[in-house]
Design a protein around this nucleic acid. Structure first.
Lengths: 241, 241
DNA sequence: TGTACATCAGTGAACGCGCGTTCACTGATGTAC
DNA sequence: TGTACATCAGTGAACGCGCGTTCACTGATGTAC
């Protein structure tokens, strides 16, 4: 039950990884629709039926790739965010965003796999939930560091009440995340996360063609504005609560 | 060259429409990947080769559906926006947003077709550009009505300079749209448009599962906040510039 | 109004392709005594 | 250390499927005189 026991097991793990690697490359070249078990098997020089010893079905292989993609982008973002001075909240957010975009540009079809339209006939299973949360959790961490309980309460421009059902959702979410932030701030956080992916998708899917030419600068500008809106430029962490 | 001349031509137009209708239904049921010329022909009781008299290729049929989808959502949004009192800018924006979301929920795969990941191996041709602009242009119109030249210049919270290359892009865009708004406002507009689609996509693609339960109220709240940010609650149109 | 020819819609068979998945099998690796 | 049996990886053929696109053709609709 501990580390790779038998030699057989080690070979198995390795081949599993090799299959995923080849599949990922095929995905990267032609998109998820074109991903075929047979093609992967062919490239590995094995019978197509042999792949079934490793993945019971095409969907299972897809799921593995999805999980890996989430982990891959999560790791990239975490790595970039960790390099920034803890006290510089705005920069932590900005570097997170930039890392996600960089990853997306370099992994077009993997990005589509997780943030594009869902693969038809495919239902994302439970296993994908945790890895999918890594980036949002990064943002949560930054907002959490923005202040002890109450401190961030004086949020910028939220001129109106949050309507009741949403208030409930967002308070629940804050509680779950152990975040001492009022609903309006949680809403801003969700919108920041939405805007981050929205910006990247708009760029990658061609919805900004004709409007923007310097995507790099444009993205940084929008994300900086977004971070400011969350109050990340004003609040520095001040000791322990 | 004027209206449907010969009887033959009229029949042709009708069948073209029928093919698109059936194709759209297939699309609506199973997504674009599953859309097949043969299946469409089968349902219409004609030989699969006959469809080629109407669309030279599968991609051409897809393009027609994309154009129709853009027009469909554009029309829905324009209709909703037009019903609102011209002076109530925030409500005009909100109703636009709500209409787009309503359309998306009712036309899942058509929405994916235009705002999800691009169909692999398919390059959107020129014809799709104009219909794609209808909704953004609606937003432009609202912002334009927000004030004469300079009036909207005192934009809310934009604490920093817009960096140069982006400034150029956005000024150019403003000029093109005959919009007397500073770059920062144009940027906010783009972000509002991005956030609108981002919100809807997040909901439809399942990225908010576990965080939000009352999507309807959540969406209205976020879009209201977005509209406020653009200053749509403060500025009412005041006569002619 | 009537005939001769051109245009076009629709047919049906065929080409060539690749896919996911199953199944009975061989042969190698691991395990228990 | 050596043998007997169980487990598992991988094979190759097959099932059954549907797809986009082409091509030579028939027959109906339109046009020009």
């Amino acid at each position: 039950m501990s580390a790779p026991r038998t030699a057989r097991q080690r070979v198995r793990d390795e081949l599993t990884r090799e299959i995923k690697d080849v599949a990922r490359r095929h995905l990267a070249e032609q998109g998820s629709a074109a991903l075929s078990l047979r093609a992967v098997a062919r490239e590995l020089g094995m019978a197509s039926s042999a792949v079934y010893r490793y993945f019971a079905t095409r969907d299972e292989l897809l799921t593995a790739l999805i999980v890996d993609a989430y982990d891959s982008v999560g790791e990239a973002a975490e790595g970039a965010e960790a390099k920034v001075d803890r006290g510089d909240l705005l920069e932590r957010w900005l570097q997170t965003a930039v890392a996600v975009r960089g990853w997306a540009l370099g992994h077009r079809y993997e990005y589509e796999l997780i943030f594009g339209s869902p693969v038809p006939g495919y239902a994302a299973p439970q296993v994908t939930i945790d890895p999918a949360a890594r980036i949002p959790l990064l943002l949560v961490g930054i907002v959490r560091d923005a202040g002890g309980p109450g401190e961030i309460g004086s949020v910028p421009e939220v001129p109106e009440e949050v309507p009741e059902p949403v208030r409930a959702d967002l308070s629940g979410l804050a509680e779950l995340l152990e975040l001492a932030a009022p609903p309006a701030v949680v809403a801003e956080m969700l919108m920041a996360w939405t805007g981050l992916i929205g910006c990247i998708s708009f760029e990658m899917f061609g919805h900004l063609v004709g409007s923007v030419t310097d995507y790099d600068t444009y993205f940084r500008y929008q994300m900086t504005t977004t971070g400011r809106r969350l109050g990340l430029d004003r609040n520095q962490r001040v000791g322990t609560s």
